[in-house]
Design a binder for these strands. Structure first.
Lengths: 231, 231, 231, 231
DNA sequence: ACTTTCGGGACACCCCGTTTCT
DNA sequence: AGAAACGGGGTGTCCCGAAAGT
C-alpha cells in the first residue's frame, strides 16, 4: 500500500507540472486523492468491524479528517462503505484470487491459486472482505450484499474459466462440472478462513489445502490415460 | 452445552412459596420461563443482525417486554447475547450437527450428517449462528468469539469421533487424519452456507455435498480390500 | 429564583411523602422538575443570545445535562425556546409588569408601574425577554413571534385596565384613549431599555420615567376640576 | 458617517492602468463597485435575520456571487457585517432621522422629524437596523454593538441640536433638557417600531406620534409668553 | 476578479444501553 | 415488570473560511 497521507497537503508547486508518463500516476485532483485515501484507510476498519459497528469517528481518527472532510467526498456512510468494499474486493481478488497464476497447465494454475490464497494474507486486515461483508450485510443492507454477491461471482467465474481451460488442455476430465469445482473451492477456502479466525490458528487452511489438492487429483485426467491420448 | 438457565437471578427470597418440595423443581418459576422466552425470541434477531446492530428496542418489540423487564433477567446486552448464542449454538448443533445419525456404519453416519446439514435449515432464522457469530465478533467482542470457537470445537470433536469410530469399524482408512476431515467438513459446509446466503440459491450447498461425498469415498476402505480383510 | 439544581437527584425517600400544604410546592415528578430546571437555566441564555445563536451545547453546559437528557423533555430546540419564552415572559410581567401595584388610585398605580419597571431589573438576565424575542424572531420564527405578540398584548391589556379604572375613579380624563396610553407606555419603556443596553447607562430609563410622568399629568383630571367635581 | 468605501482593499498595484489621471477618480473600479453592491444586497438580509442567523449562503444567493467572490472584498463575515451596518445606519438616518427637516422653526422641524420617521418606512427592509443590531448584538458581538451605540448617539446628537436651536430661537423653554427630549424621542419611536413589528399594525407608531406631539407642546414656549417676549 | 474545491468544526436531532423509580 | 430518566455516542447537515484554479 502506498503511503497517501504524506502526500496530502503538499503544495502543487513543489511537484513537476504534469507528471509525464510515469507509470499509472495519472495526476489526481487533490480531492480525488483524499477520497481515495479515505477509502484505503477506512477499508481495514470496515473489514474488521462491519458496516454498523464501524463509526465515522473511527474513520475520522484513522484519516485525520474531520466529519466535514469525509462527508465532502461521500454522501453518507453507506456510499463510503460501498466504495470501500469495491476497493477491498478488488485488492483481495488481485492478491489472492488468481493473479499471478499464469504459468503451467490449468491444474498447476489451480494449485497455485490455492497456495496463493492460503499463503498470502488478506491485503485488507481483518480477514477476507468478501466473507465479512457477505455475513455482515446478510440482512438490512441489500446494496452491500449485492456487491458481495457480485464479487463472489467474479471470483467463481475466474476459477471456472481455468477449469474449462483445463478441460480443453486435456488435463481435466471432460465430465467435470466447472461451476461445482469453483463453488467448492471458494466455499472450502472461505470456510477455512472463518475457522482460522476463531481458532487463532492456520490449521484449517492447511487442511483445506490438502483436501482441495485431493479434489484436483480426482478431476485430473489420470496419467496413464493422458499418455495414451497423446500417443 | 451446559445448562445455564437455572444458575442466576432467581431471587428466591422474594418469591411466593410455590415451588414444590422437589429439589429439582422441573416446573420453572415464572421468571425463569420469561428469561428463556426472551432468549428464544431474541435469538433470530441477534442471528440476523449481529451483536452491535441488534438493538434492545428490537428485542423489546419481539418479546413485548419493556426494557426493565429484560434487564431484570440479564445484566446487560452482552450477557444476553452470550446466553442467546449458547442457546442458538445448541439448537443448531442438535438440529444439523450430528443428532439423529446413529444408524449404520461410520461412513453412513458421516454421510447422514452432511445430508442433514444441507437439508435441514438453520433452526434459528438468519443462517448458521456459529458462522455469523464467528465473523461478527471477529474484533471487539472476545467473549462471544470464544463461545463461537468453543461451539466450533465441539462440533469438530463430534465429527472426529465418528471418523475415529469408522477407523475402528474398519470402514475408514487407518491413515486418515480425523481432525483434518472434520475441519474440511465444517469449512466446506459453512463456506457453502455463506455463498448460499449471498447467492440466494442453494446450489453451493449441493456442490459441497457432492464434494464432501467424494472426500468420504477417498478415505473409505475400498470395497475389495474390505472384503478381503473380512475373509 | 429557587435553587433547583441541588434538588435534583435527591432520592425521594429522604423527603416527606406528600408535602402537605406548604405553599405552592405541588410535588413534581422528577422529570417534570428537570424539565422546569432546564427551562429556568436556559432562559438567560436564550434571552442573551437569541434563538439561533443559542446552541444546545450552551444549554447542556448550563444544566449539566447531556444531550439525551435535554431531548427527553423537549421535542426540539424550537419547543424548548417556546417554553423558555413563556416562562421568561411570565416572570418578566410578574416582576416588572403590574404586579404589586394594587394600592392607591389608578394614577398612583400607573406611576408605581413605571417605577417598578425602571427600578426592578429584568428577572431574566439579558434584558427584557419580550423585546429581545420580538426583535430576534422578527423573521423566520413565526411561533416565537406570535408568543411575543401575545405577551405584549397581555401587558397592554393590564395597563389599559388601570387607565379605565382611573377614568371610572374620576382621576383620569374621560376622553383618554387607554389603548394609546398603554401603547406609549410600553413603547417608551422598551425603547429606553434598548437604549440602556447599547449605552451601558440607565439614563434613558430615567428620561423615560420623567416623560411618562408628564404623560400621566396630561391625562390626569386637574386638581381644581377634581375638587369641584367632588364638591 | 465617514466614507469608508474607498479605504481598503484596492490593491492598486495589480490593476490594469485604467483609472484616468484624475486623483479623485469618481468612476469606481469594478472591484469597488462589487464591494458596494454586496453591502447593499446583504443589508436587508442582515437586518432581517441578524448577524448569526444570516449565513453567507444567503448572501451568495442574493448577490449571485460565489463565496470566493465575497471573501475577496471582506476579510470575514464580521467585517462584512460591520460595513453593512454602517451602510444601513447611514441610509436609515438619512431617510428617517433628520434629513429634509430644514424648514420652519425648531418645533416644526422636530415635528417634521417625527412625521418622517413614522411615515417613511425603513429604507432597509426588516425594520430599523439600529434597533435590530442593538438587540441582536447585545451579547457576543461587541464590535457591532459599539457601532450601534455610535449610530444612536449620532441620532441623538442631531435631535439635541435642534432642541438647542429651539431654545435659542425662543420657541422651546429654557429649562428643557435637550438630551432628555432626544432620548425619549428615540426610545418612544424605536419602542413603537418594535411593537409595530410584532403586532403587524402601525397603530403603535400613531400613538407614539400623538404622545411625542404632546411632549413638544409641553416643552414649547407658550404662545402668550412668546408674544410677550417678542414684544 | 471571480469560481471551484476543499476541509475544519459545530450543530441538531436521534437512538441506544443502562439505571432508577414506581 | 413498567415507565421514566439520563449519559453518551452516532449521523448527517451546514457554515465559515482558506486555497487552488481559471
Amino acid at each position: 500500500v502506498r503511503n497517501f497521507s504524506t502526500r496530502l497537503y503538499c503544495s502543487a508547486k513543489g511537484m513537476p507540472e504534469k507528471s509525464g508518463a510515469d507509470g499509472m500516476s495519472e495526476t489526481l485532483r487533490k480531492g480525488e486523492q483524499t477520497r481515495q485515501t479515505i477509502i484505503e484507510l477506512a477499508a481495514p476498519i470496515f473489514n474488521r468491524r462491519g458496516f454498523t459497528a464501524c463509526s465515522l469517528a473511527e474513520i475520522m481518527e484513522a484519516t485525520g479528517l474531520e466529519k466535514g472532510g469525509v462527508y465532502r467526498h461521500f454522501a453518507n456512510k453507506e456510499e463510503l462503505a460501498e466504495e470501500v468494499f469495491r476497493y477491498s474486493a478488488r485488492r483481495a481478488l488481485e492478491a489472492r484470487g488468481i493473479g499471478g497464476a499464469e504459468e503451467g497447465d490449468a491444474l498447476m494454475r489451480l494449485r497455485k491459486m490455492i497456495t496463493r490464497f492460503i499463503d498470502v494474507p488478506s491485503p485488507i486486515p481483518g480477514g477476507c472482505p468478501l466473507l465479512n461483508t457477505a455475513i455482515d450485510s446478510d440482512d438490512g443492507n441489500p446494496a452491500l450484499r449485492k456487491l458481495a454477491a457480485r464479487a463472489f461471482a467474479a471470483w467463481k467465474r475466474r476459477i471456472c474459466r481455468v477449469v474449462e481451460q483445463g478441460i480443453e488442455e486435456g488435463v481435466i476430465q471432460h465430465a467435470t462440472n466447472a461451476e461445482s469445482v469453483a463453488t467448492v473451492f471458494i466455499a472450502t477456502l472461505e470456510g477455512a478462513v472463518a475457522l482460522t479466525r476463531v481458532e487463532c490458528s492456520r490449521d484449517a487452511l492447511k487442511h483445506a489445502q490438502i483436501f482441495l489438492g485431493g479434489l484436483l487429483d480426482q478431476i485430473a485426467v489420470k496419467q496413464k490415460t493422458r499418455k495414451r491420448r497423446v500417443s
